[in-house]
Design a protein around this nucleic acid. Structure first.
Lengths: 227, 227
DNA sequence: GCCAAAGCTGACCATATGGTCAAGAATCAA
DNA sequence: TTGATTCTTGACCATATGGTCAGCTTTGGC
């Protein structure tokens, strides 16, 4: 038995928490860079500043460590999947969606790359998540998008392709960071860059899908002028 | 010395060509799935139906095989980077660009994933290509886009972000195929699906960037009606 | 200070890795 | 048929892999 049993999740003493944190951080980097097979426990241990045995002591096995990392990433993901309803303003919802996705890519690029690496490898560990939880989320969002289209708030585009468009174009800046750096010639993108890209993507998506403000709807459909 | 020296590239006898072909195909799959480190020569050999020694005999080393694959992918890529000029119709150029990128992702998904895997891993083998050849191509295209914007043929968007948008949203269907399958619930996308997605992306990009037909320009700017 | 629990880690293991090599088999122009 | 070139491959090697374990030290509540 450990000390007092608090109801919250992060179990274990201070030492355990500190070391696990170091291991998880190092592992996220290494797995993101080399994929599940290509990553070695030895390298993770070195990056965490611990002997290999210690990593196995805390994490049990390479596989368990990897699964735990994926779960951590998916938790961050899910926290972003907030609820929207058909009554909200499409432009605002899409804008917020793009912005939060963009900043997620910026704040957790290694996590994004870890996820990408898993998917590229055929998603051996995430298949049920994709075709279960995530699929449901996408389809519930799709329903809302379709309602917007029916009410003339946006063009009748396929919502799934639209979601994929937003996902891919935002995650690009995390997953393909090396390419972005090579082509722009910069060592890293600044916060302003990210903000400008966010604005660009938002603009293209909203204008490209013919999203209208609810207020403009009441003003009659005779005027095709935007804004 | 081998037989007659023909000027074309694919050297070697029929046996060599056949085996190399089998090895390259198998290797593209395995490297795409597991990354450079995670791929094993043994697995490549098995998938090619040859003993490991034979793979090394033809390819020299794992590293040389990998580099050769990357070069093959980049050749396919470069063949697509045809020339455009500021005199062309922006809508047509962008449409053709999206379409060819989309079909490249469909026809060579393993190659696309191989490239993605290399970039996610920090592009250790492709850094100079990215910041050299590819960078120049992007910037030459960017110049054309800017000229279009100056002539009022499209909104003054940053051309580099636009190119990234097209790259990411098209490549998504190769790189994240597992995710697309899981969420759509389908075993594979059909040619019609790809065509519809192409149309969707083209529409969003062209409408979203305010691309106009050159003919509409002459008709005066009073009419804001589209199409 | 006591002692059980937690933390730590070098030595070790079976297996898999990329790569070499030598010796034989198939191919082919002459 | 000959002889040289190409092809084929099992045996082998040094190293790295994920994982185990026994025995040590440290920690922290009493």
């Amino acid at each position: 038995m450990a000390k007092a049993d608090n109801g919250s999740e992060p179990e274990g003493g201070a030492i355990r928490r500190r070391n696990e944190q170091a291991i998880l951080e190092a592992a996220e980097r290494v797995f993101a860079r080399h994929g599940y097979r290509g990553a070695s426990v030895q390298e993770i241990a070195e990056q965490a500043g611990l002997p290999k045995s210690n990593v196995l002591y805390y994490m049990g096995s390479k596989r368990k460590l990897y699964v735990r990392l994926l779960e951590r990433v998916m938790e961050r993901w899910n926290a972003m999947l907030d609820d929207i309803s058909a009554d909200d303003d499409p432009a605002e919802v899409l804008s917020a969606f793009i912005r939060s996705k963009m900043w997620m890519s910026r704040r957790h690029p290694e996590g994004s790359r870890l996820f990408a690496s898993e998917i590229i490898g055929g998603a051996p560990f995430l298949q049920e998540y994709l075709s279960g939880e995530l699929r449901n989320w996408v389809h519930s969002r799709a329903t809302v998008f379709r309602q917007w289209a029916e009410r003339g708030l946006m063009d009748p585009v396929d919502p799934v392709w639209l979601i994929f468009l937003i996902w891919s174009s935002t995650q690009h800046y995390a997953d393909f960071e090396a390419q972005v750096r090579g082509i722009t010639g910069r060592k890293a993108l600044s916060d302003e860059d990210i903000e400008r890209i966010t604005e660009f993507l938002t603009r293209v998506v909203i204008k490209g899908c013919g999203v209208k403000h609810p207020a403009d709807l009441a003003a009659g459909e005779a005027s095709l002028t935007e804004r």
